[in-house]
Amino acid sequence: MTVTINVNGKAICGDIAPDLLLIDFLRDHGCLSVKRGCDTSNCGACTVHMDGKPVLSCGILAARADGHQITTLEGLQKEALEFGGFIADEGAEQCGYCSPGLIMECIAMVRECREKGIDNPSDEDIKAYLAGNLCRCSGYEGQMRGIHAFFEWRRSHRDASIL
């Protein structure tokens, strides 16, 4: 079947198998930041944005993304550096395999916070938002420190932030 999926601002037409998963479509088209960690939609490593909302690309058929806008970390490089830098300053990206999925989820969280006027989310709210993003290296603490450091920086550098 033929689909047209907009990936990072560029329309990609493809003749695909009906059972092709979105993660495989994206990796086949060079979006190698999208990682497979579990096969059962439990780890969050394959998180991408579909029309701006975070989704698990291993749990969505490529066919279902037909006509939709997909964003991967390849399309958010500056945002990834800005936000991810705070995680890296804690050393909490560690092996980095879960980082793209986590940062995609975090970017969605930051944007949602901005829409709702939240500039200092609580630990429990952050944990709830990111509950689906597993990390085995960090114990999550360093990532939490990095997320808080980002929000703290952003409160005083609102104009400098591209997020």
Binding site: V34, T72, Q77, A80, G84, G85, A88, E93, G96, I103
Partner: peptide
């Protein structure tokens, strides 16, 4: 002293650095 990991920027921007990539 605490330094950023040398590979940090490549990892947080999702560059293809793993075996499968």
């Amino acid at each position: 002293h605490s330094w950023r990991k040398k590979d940090a920027d490549q990892l947080i921007t999702g560059k293809p650095v793993y075996t499968q990539d």
